[in-house]
Every structure is written in structure tokens, then in C-alpha cells.
């Protein structure tokens, strides 16, 4: 068996087992998924009622419906939760079992993300298409080529958010406050990624900072692509992908650094 084939077979078998576990807990998974809808829906309600008949920051009520539907889907498909599991595994020593196997522990986490995100996509995308039949505001004003770019942007964002979350989780090698630090990061992310309102609502310097840091690239960029906001700005699209790729590369390098140094500090707690 060639190296690559063996590698993909490992992913294959992990996918099957994670899928089986998720199905064993399908109602929890659903509640978890729906729970994440609350914040974008509340934001949506607020902005729709504030905008009334006019528009705020270039968005009408109908634009807000489309914007937050896109936020809800993009956020759900790109958000990583590995920090909690990793933090617990490292502090309680259950990380050892993964570390002893000849397959890097990060693959277990990547696989988990693929499994849950596949499941979410299978539920959310058909639901969106169905709702769009009844609510014109939810119809996506872009062509298939752009949809392809959106899928790429979501995949890159998912990778960026995963690598960030995984590094926060690895902080558990040094500190028992990894999840608290991550919560702080997530709080900033909520504002600067466009989850709570479009970035055009913020002062210019805040929006500019969000576009330099990884925040804009994780949610607002795929959302802008999907809602047709970038239809006449091919340059912004390329800058967006370049920003995603650049941040992913940088974060992958720092992940490598944190991993190597963290491992030396691992205490493998518990007998």
C-alpha cells in the first residue's frame, strides 16, 4: 500500500467511527447546532427592526436577512471547538492515548471537524434552499462560479479557525486557562469577523484592523462573497483569498512551533 493511500484509509476509518459516534448522539448534535443559531438570529432581529423602511450602513432590512442567514451558515461551517476537548485531554492526561499512536493527534481533530461540518452542511444547505423558495430575501444573488469560490473561502476559513482553536487548546500545555483565553478571543472575533453586524457599521479604523488581522477572512469575507457584495470587486476577492492563504500559512508555522515546545512540557497527568 502506498503512503498516500494508507494515509487516506486512516482518514476513512476515523470518519466512519466519528460519524457513528455523532449519530449515537444525533439529538445532542442537533441541539448544539440550533443553539448556535440564536446569536445571529437575535442580531438579525435587531438590525431589521432598526433599519425599518430605510437602510443602515448600506444594508436594507432585506439585505440584513440575507447577510445574517449567510453568517449563520458560514459561522456554523467554519467554527472550531477543538480547544475544549484538547484542553481537557491535555490537563487530564487523556491526550496520552492519542500521542502513543503512530498518527498525529491533530488528524483526529481535523477528522472530527470534517464529520460534524459535513453533517451541518447536509442539514443547513437544503433547509436554506427550501426557505429561499418562500422568502425572496433569502435568495442568493450569485452565479455558480461564485458559489465555487464561496466553498473555497469557507474551506480556507474553516482551516484558519481550526488552526487558531487548536493552538489555543495547546496552551493547556502551559496554563490551565486555555479555554478562558479562547473565550476572550471568541468575544473579539464576534465583533471583528462581522458576526454581530456587517463591518461597514464599525468605525473605519476598526474595520481596517479586522481586514488586516485574520478576523475579516474567517466570516465576513465568505459572507460578502456569498451575498454578492463583492460581485463588482474582483480585486477585493483576490485580496481576500491571498489574506486567507497568508494567514493560514503563518498560523500553520506557529502551530508547529507551539506543538514542538508544548510537547516537552506535557505532564501526561494521571495514572
Amino acid at each position: 500500500m502506498s503512503g498516500a493511500a494508507a494515509f487516506w484509509r486512516k482518514y476513512g476509518v476515523l470518519f466512519k467511527s466519528d460519524w457513528a459516534i455523532m449519530m449515537a448522539y444525533r439529538s445532542e448534535t442537533l441541539i448544539w447546532m440550533v443553539g448556535a443559531f440564536v446569536q445571529p438570529l437575535v442580531s438579525l432581529a435587531v438590525w431589521v427592526s432598526l433599519s425599518g423602511e430605510g437602510s443602515i450602513a448600506g444594508y436594507t432590512a432585506s439585505d440584513y436577512v440575507l447577510y445574517f442567514t449567510a453568517v449563520l451558515v458560514v459561522d456554523r461551517l467554519t467554527r472550531a471547538w477543538d480547544v475544549y476537548e484538547l484542553d481537557r485531554d491535555i490537563r487530564e492526561g487523556t491526550f496520552s492515548a492519542k500521542l502513543l499512536r503512530p498518527f498525529h493527534p491533530i488528524h483526529w481533530s481535523i477528522n472530527g471537524n470534517i464529520v460534524y461540518k459535513t453533517f451541518f452542511a447536509m442539514l443547513m444547505i437544503p433547509s436554506w434552499l427550501l426557505l429561499a423558495m418562500f422568502f425572496p430575501a433569502m435568495r442568493i444573488p450569485v452565479d455558480m462560479g461564485t458559489i465555487g469560490l464561496v466553498i473555497l473561502a469557507i474551506a480556507l476559513s474553516s482551516a484558519i479557525r481550526f488552526v487558531i482553536g487548536y493552538q489555543f487548546g495547546l496552551l493547556a500545555f502551559w496554563s490551565n486557562r486555555a479555554t478562558a483565553m479562547y473565550a476572550l478571543y471568541e468575544g473579539i472575533h464576534m465583533f471583528l469577523s462581522g458576526r454581530i453586524a456587517p463591518l461597514s457599521m464599525f468605525p473605519d479604523w476598526v474595520a481596517d484592523a479586522a481586514r488586516v488581522l485574520p478576523f475579516y477572512f474567517t466570516v465576513a469575507f465568505p459572507v460578502d462573497l456569498l451575498t454578492g457584495r463583492l460581485a463588482d470587486e474582483p480585486e477585493t476577492v483576490w485580496i481576500g483569498f491571498a489574506g486567507q492563504a497568508g494567514w493560514l500559512l503563518l498560523l500553520a508555522l506557529s502551530l508547529r512551533f507551539i506543538w514542538r515546545n508544548g510537547l516537552k512540557r506535557y505532564g501526561a497527568a494521571g495514572g
Binding site: 500500500m1 494508507a6 484509509r9 486512516k10 476513512g12 476509518v13 476515523l14 466512519k16 467511527s17 457513528a20 459516534i21 449515537a24 448522539y25 492526561g93 487523556t94 496520552s96 492515548a97 502513543l100 499512536r101 503512530p102 498518527f103 494521571g270 495514572g271
Partner: peptide, 23 residues
């Protein structure tokens, strides 16, 4: 005192995972 089996699925599934991981 520590388990490396996956809790929610049969042990035979963990064995299958090991089959691939250890090639």
C-alpha cells in the same frame, strides 16, 4: 486506569481504527 478504547462504539471499531493506523 486510562482507556484508549472509544467509549461510545464497540471495541471492534477501535480495533479497525488501529488496523489502519498501524497499517
Amino acid at each position: 486506569q486510562k482507556s484508549q478504547l472509544i467509549w461510545d462504539i464497540p471495541a471492534s471499531e477501535t480495533f479497525l481504527i488501529h488496523k489502519e493506523i498501524y497499517e
